[in-house]
């Protein structure tokens, strides 16, 4: 049948069985299953304990902070402005944390964003890969910041308070119907409050095995870091020529 062939070339739900004009029971339930997975991923609170234990085991320091979203995921969804700010106490913690060191400092921030499943599944290997890559480049890493209910721009405030030169934000992306666990990586050079999204680079859809794999994502990240270092900026002015075949940095 022609649809079996066509479904091999697209993930689109083409040629669905009908019952009258409606979807067949099977097609309807498949759709509802995908939606349920996406919904549960968004609604779920982030259990960061496994990540903390794993980081401790690898002797990678981390710091748990809170965004200004106090309370529920509902507040988080309706108030993106609160997700971009730190809660007052977390701010004081960062301010009192005197980060030493002369070398360029990089911060890695992990937040569940819109998909807790995504960071639960994908953040550890990425954090380890970034730590490894940073070590090779001689870039000091700040403690890994773990912040539930954050938005991408939260990294700007953290970067400003901790005087970081780089911020790598690992955040759960808005789940699509066929991608409940997709993770986004945002790279910002000199993260400071007021940066716009045009001043960052994004590596989207990290979600092995269906989406981008960890090593591909890390290669692209370090390619971007190398390029950004040359021009002293991230964002739209930085062309990601690596887009199709990411190369490992020399």
């Amino acid at each position: 049948m022609i649809w079996d062939e066509l479904r091999k070339i697209t993930q689109a739900r083409v040629g669905l069985q009908r019952s009258g004009h409606a979807l067949s029971t099977k097609a309807l339930l498949e759709l509802e299953e995908s939606h349920a997975l996406a919904r549960d991923s968004i609604g779920a609170e982030w259990d960061s304990l496994p990540l903390e234990l794993a980081l401790a085991q690898k002797k990678i320091p981390y710091l748990s902070l809170q965004s200004a979203v106090e309370g529920s995921r509902r507040t988080y969804l309706q108030r993106p402005d609160l997700g971009r700010k730190l809660q007052r106490e977390s701010r004081s913690i960062l301010e009192s944390l005197k980060l030493e060191g002369q070398k360029p400092r990089m911060g890695v921030c992990v937040s569940n964003g819109l998909s807790s499943f995504s960071v639960q599944r994908h953040s550890l290997p990425l954090v380890l890969g970034i730590a490894e890559g940073a070590r090779k480049l001689g870039i000091d890493l700040a403690p890994v910041f773990l912040v539930p209910n954050g938005r991408v721009a939260l990294g700007d405030e953290i970067g400003q308070l901790a005087s970081l030169q780089w911020m790598v934000m690992l955040i759960g992306e808005r789940p699509g119907l066929s991608s409940a666990d997709s993770l986004g990586i945002y790279l910002t050079y000199e993260p400071r409050i007021g940066r716009t999204d045009a001043e960052r680079n994004c590596i989207s859809n990290v979600r092995p095995p269906d989406g981008l794999g960890y090593s591909q994502a890390l290669s692209r990240l370090f390619y971007l870091i190398a390029q950004a270092q040359k021009i002293g900026a991230t964002g739209v002015i930085l062309k990601d020529e690596s887009s199709e075949t990411p190369q490992l940095p020399e």
């Binding site: 739900r13 669905l16 699509g176 119907l177 066929s178």
Partner: peptide
């Protein structure tokens, strides 16, 4: 009209071809 209402590019649910058939009918 999107196949099965699932827009795999934009990552949202719109109306499907079947929804249009239902409404027209």
């Amino acid at each position: 009209g999107v196949p099965g209402s699932d827009d795999i590019m934009l990552g949202y649910q719109s109306t499907g071809f079947h929804d249009a058939l239902f409404l027209r009918n």
